[in-house]
């Protein structure tokens, strides 16, 4: 296992009175793809959204335990959430480009960081679009609305938008669940490329997708981490019977 980028210790999360995550401890390795699988409502998305403190937006959420990123507890009082989220990009289930041009979508992150020099912005936008493998499809219509792109293109644009902020970690919340197989394939191939430079955590309902793209897999059930290990191991000979039953489709 490579060095751990994200470490959680006894992470417990409540929505009001309801416990959504129960004492999760795990180490997510750097520059690898880690997939979270499990049936709906098992807490995998909640856990993912704890990693960039997106759950802060929900008032009733209470969290105990710690999440260390590069050894730093991100739930410390002195942590600046805005800076934290610059370091941890997020790609959502539904592609959500802004109602702006393709260029302005990607330039959004740099602009809020105070970069307004058009030359620098152009460079960042081009590099991000290339890294997200969508440059060739959009280079001739940078100033058209992003909403005119297809679903798969929009999702890759959203990935480019995330890359433009130069994060170290990219969280993906079912990034391909709304896409057709071809677009899904492109996203998966992109994930495979991106893991050379980024630590990627992906939540997916699609077990085959987890098997294809990830190096490590974590299986969640009812807010608990049931099993975490190399994807090869989990999908050929899992240690826990529950995991085996889930990945073979015998329950859930």
């Amino acid at each position: 296992m490579k060095e751990a980028k994200i470490i959680t210790r006894d992470l417990t999360l409540h929505y009001g009175q309801k416990m959504a995550l129960n004492s999760i401890s795990m180490q997510i390795p750097e520059k690898e793809v880690t997939a979270f699988i499990g049936p709906s409502g098992c807490g995998k998305s909640t856990f993912l959204r704890s990693l960039n403190r997106m759950n802060d937006l929900i008032p009733s959420v209470k969290i105990t335990g710690e999440i260390l990123i590069d050894g730093l507890n991100i739930y410390q009082k002195k942590i600046d959430v805005v800076n934290l989220r610059k370091k941890i990009g997020m790609v959502f289930q539904k592609s959500n480009p802004f109602a702006k041009s393709i260029f302005e979508n990607v330039a959004y992150g740099p602009r809020i960081n105070g970069i307004n020099n058009l030359k620098i912005l152009t460079e960042i936008v081009e590099r991000s679009l290339k890294n997200a493998a969508i440059w060739d499809e959009v280079k001739d219509r940078m100033h058209d609305s992003a909403l005119g792109l297809s679903g798969g293109q929009q999702q890759r644009l959203c990935i480019a938008r995330t890359l433009a902020v130069e994060p170290e970690i990219i969280l993906m919340d079912e990034p391909a669940s709304a896409l057709d197989p071809i677009s899904t394939g492109k996203i998966e191939e992109l994930i495979f490329e991106l893991k050379k430079s980024y630590t990627i955590v992906i939540v997916t309902h699609n077990m085959q997708q987890a098997a294809r793209v990830s190096d490590y897999t974590a299986f969640f059930y009812l807010g608990e981490l049931i099993e975490f290990g190399k994807t090869r191991k989990i999908f050929t000979a899992p240690d826990v019977k529950h995991t085996e039953e889930y990945i073979t489709g015998r329950f859930g």
């Binding site: 997106m54 959004y108 959203c158």
Partner: peptide, 9 residues
Amino acid sequence: EASLALGAT
């Protein structure tokens, strides 16, 4: 969420 996740205030 997209905006906040990009580090916007």
